[in-house]
Design a protein around this nucleic acid. Structure first.
Length: 569
RNA sequence: GUCCCAGUACCUCAGUUGGAUAGAGGGUUCGCCUCCUAAGCGAAACGCCGUAGGUUCAAAUCCUAUCUGGGACGCCA
């Protein structure tokens, strides 16, 4: 086993399983029932109330039907058959309607604490990923404009999730999909062209369609283009003019995207161009495969996909009557590339909640091209509501006055942005309080956790100046740590690997932000109850060890969230 | 109209996948620095878990209905 906490759980489960097995032999004559009883899943949980022990199982209640007995009786029989030798189990009790409660020795805390210190940066590392290749594709903002709040949340979420999965033992690739082809690029070209002409010949020289990109960034791009090429494109053919404008605009926008994301501490392994799968024929190839799948048909000159077979309300067009593939068709080809061409075991996409209609048909399409759709995981992220002075700050694409990612970072800093966007789980609407994010006090959770870190660093620094360093953990008597606040802090520290486990399983890095807040609170509480610097040299070493362990774990979480760990504040 | 998400303290949100007396932070009230960072800690008050049925030893959690808020339903992406 990798860790004390998992080991402890397994000890208990195993002990209970063996006991159930023994009880079945004794109580049940019917082989079938006996088998059924033995196969009943043993689950253990941490009771909310400390008086109910460290762990608890409801197995006796689950077995009432099979064993045809009262839960209390069954629990008693199980407890009588539990072997606690060579485990951390100190006491077993039956309580309430038939719970079996386990009280564990504090040695597991002390062993766990030393393990945490010994492992250092590696504490929390798991092997559950088994080195599987996982891709996390996130942000993938449209290169026709700057990034908005949805991208900012998706960026923090996707990047932190990728880090959690790495920690859990997956081989992770971070990818950004650049939509540099298709209809929105035509729209981009039309918009730029119109602004170009308007800039040179006046607003009324050409009509600006309501469908086009209204933002001021388009005007700025046109102006930048003019500052280099002047009016030399005015009398060129429209196609040629648009092509030049699009090329210029995309290069500029994409380079800004890369710059902004790098500044946001996100480093992608792959920047994938949509145009590449048009050019190398993979889109056409994919469509041929789809045609052979019997899940497509022709109607009104278009090629359709039978989305209704996968729970959608309507079928969807793959190839328009004009011969061009839809976004859907291209996306299928892109995902075929991920799975078939590049061999990912698992692909996680982070999409805005407005894409939910796209989920069922994408999974259906995966089945149609022979990919197990359960390998495709889609996280739908609810949109962000920015709050300032108690009022929602509206973002308007139409007026071009939306708040961009770089605006946000300028206002509140990278640490606050990354932490706040991981404060809530993806599925919940995020209310982002800008005033709170800027606040330099304990109301602001980012400062609260960073302060805890700096406080520990300060203690260690002060002791070091007096020539006191941490001894070898083998020489430290951890059992001296028996204050309630010390025990609670240790318990939290050693549960860190499990936190990684749960977080990677549910794909929710927000669990870790909550964890690090709890951990910080427990540290502050310990700090107020116990002095590290004290006369008892042995106690001081034990407490210093506790400080080091806490500091390491906080740093560990900060690394995942990619926020700064300040040595002093 | 169909579908998705949400509804838990005054506010923002957790709730370990069905468990024991429903939690945290903020806000409110009251306490704690001679001593490692008071950017901190402790205590108190705050609840029809949207509503009504059902499933069972046990429901905030699962099922059905219903109300409220947000979103999606294009040969757009």
């Amino acid at each position: 086993m990798e860790n004390v906490i998992f080991e402890t759980k397994n000890q208990i489960i195993k002990a209970v399983e063996n006991a159930v097995s023994a009880v079945s032999e004794l109580l049940l004559t019917d082989d079938e029932a006996s088998e059924k009883a033995k196969n009943t899943q043993v689950e253990i949980e941490v009771p909310k109330d400390k008086n109910h022990g460290d762990f608890s199982t409801n197995i006796a209640m689950k077995l009432t039907k099979i064993m045809k007995n009262a839960p209390g009786k069954i629990a008693e029989a199980i407890v009588n058959n539990i072997v606690t030798d060579r485990t951390y189990i100190e006491k077993v009790e039956i309580a309430g309607p038939g719970f079996i409660n386990f009280y564990l020795s504090d040695n597991r805390l002390y062993d766990g604490l030393k393990e945490a210190v010994r492992l250092g940066d590696d504490f929390g590392k798991l092997t559950i990923g088994k080195g599987q290749k996982v891709m996390v594709e996130f942000v993938s903002a449209n290169p026709t404009g700057p990034m908005h709040m949805g991208n900012a949340r998706g960026g923090a979420l996707g990047d932190s999730l990728a880090s959690v999965l790495e920690k859990a033992g997956y081989d992770v690739t971070r990818e950004f999909y650049i939509n540099d082809a298709g209809a929105q690029i035509d729209k981009f070209g039309n918009s730029l062209e119109a602004r170009y002409i308007q800039n040179l010949k006046g607003e009324d020289a050409v009509e600006f369609s309501a469908d086009w990109y209204q933002g001021n960034d388009i005007k700025r791009l046109a102006a930048d283009f003019i500052s280099i090429y002047g009016d030399s494109y005015l009398d060129r053919p429209s196609d040629e003019r648009k092509k030049a404008l699009v090329k210029f605009g995309l290069e500029k926008n994409i380079s800004n995207l890369k710059k902004d994301l790098a500044n946001y501490r996100i480093n992608y392994d792959v920047w994938f161009n949509e145009s590449s799968i048009h050019e190398n024929g993979e889109v056409a190839e994919t469509i041929e495969i789809l045609k052979k799948s019997h899940l497509t048909y022709e109607n009104d000159g278009a090629l359709w996909f039978k989305s209704t077979e996968f729970g959608s309300e309507k079928d969807d067009v793959l190839i328009r009557a004009n011969g061009f593939p839809t976004y859907f068709a291209v996306d299928i080809a892109y995902h075929r590339n991920k799975f078939v061409k590049r061999g990912f075991d698992k692909v996680i996409n982070i999409w805005g909640a407005d894409h939910h209609g796209h989920v069922a048909r994408m999974k259906g399409a995966m089945e149609a091209i022979g990919v197990d759709s359960s390998k495709l995981e889609i996280i739908l992220m609810q949109l962000v509501r920015l709050m300032k002075d108690g009022e929602a700050v509206r973002m308007s694409k139409r007026t071009g006055e939306m708040i961009t990612l770089s605006d946000l970072i300028e206002d509140i800093g990278i640490d606050a942005a990354r932490f706040f966007f991981n404060l809530r789980q993806a599925g919940s609407h995020l209310e982002f309080d800008l005033d709170l994010a800027i606040a330099q006090n304990n109301d602001n959770p980012v400062f609260y956790v960073q302060y805890a870190y700096a406080r520990i660093a300060s203690i260690i620094r002060n002791l070091s100046q007096e020539g006191i360093e941490l001894n070898n953990t083998d020489d430290i008597n951890a059992a001296l740590l028996n204050d309630e606040s010390e025990l609670a802090l240790i318990e939290k520290i050693i549960s860190y690997p499990e936190e990684i486990y749960l977080s990677s399983l549910s794909m929710e890095p927000s669990k870790l932000t909550r964890y690090v807040m709890d951990l910080s609170a427990l540290f502050h509480s310990f700090y107020n109850n116990c002095r590290v610097q004290c006369d008892d040299k042995n106690l001081m070493q034990a407490r210093l060890m506790l400080c080091h362990a806490t500091k390491n774990v906080i740093k560990n979480v900060f690394d995942i969230l990619k926020i700064d760990a300040p040595e002093r504040m």
